[in-house]
Design a protein around this nucleic acid. Sequence first.
DNA 1: AATGTGTACCTAGAATGTCGACATATGACG
DNA 2: CGTCATATGTCGACATTCTAGGTACACATT
Lengths: 110, 110
Amino acid sequence: MKDKSEVLQGTLDMLILKVVALGPIHGYGIAQRMRQISKEVLQVQQGSLYPALHRLEKRGWLESSWQESESGRPAKFYKLSAEGRKQLAQEQLSWERVAGAIALILRTAE
Amino acid sequence: MKDKSEVLQGTLDMLILKVVALGPIHGYGIAQRMRQISKEVLQVQQGSLYPALHRLEKRGWLESSWQESESGRPAKFYKLSAEGRKQLAQEQLSWERVAGAIALILRTAE
DNA sequence: AATGTGTACCTAGAATGTCGACATATGACG
DNA sequence: CGTCATATGTCGACATTCTAGGTACACATT
């Protein structure tokens, strides 16, 4: 009966990569931006966000550096690596393939 | 580097409910039908399929009965219950909401 | 007669990912 | 001084899917 768990398993990495691709941004900002662009639908929890960021950095798709946030406090800014850009492109293709297939099923008439 | 894992986490239940909604069908047939409709994209593994069917039956969304399959051998046929129909409608709505939100993010220009 | 292939069911264990809850710290504002 | 928004992080629980195994029967091929 959960109403708020809105991030589809397996899509979070792609979404993060995509948001970071829009320009360097810190973790907290990623969550805000995702929420804003998606009109409040996609709400990443912190317990999902930070592990995901570490995962992506470990795999070499993101690079980070400490800088000052807009509010003047320290924050870890992420940017996309070259490999991250490739990965994003691939995940996007895969998403479209699968989402298209699901649409086919859902649209099948009785 | 997995190439074949094609079922998006969280969508399997919905897909199964939808395929069963097309008419009574046995488990093995569900996998075939899904694969066929999706043009070979969605390939459910048996290790995912059967636990899912038991899960769905336990929750009261599917009902089963042993009957003869087309090949003459016994097979467990599933049909959608009234609650299953409701559940399917709800999951479909939720899917469209989330898939739409993801599309918004992916389409955001730099 | 033996072997393989397709149908049809099933389970156990591992891997993964997400969430809820918690913990920490700072700056701004009343 | 307390509270809120910002900002990072961890930990354990939970659900889901996959890999890999198993059983059994029918039919076709060798």
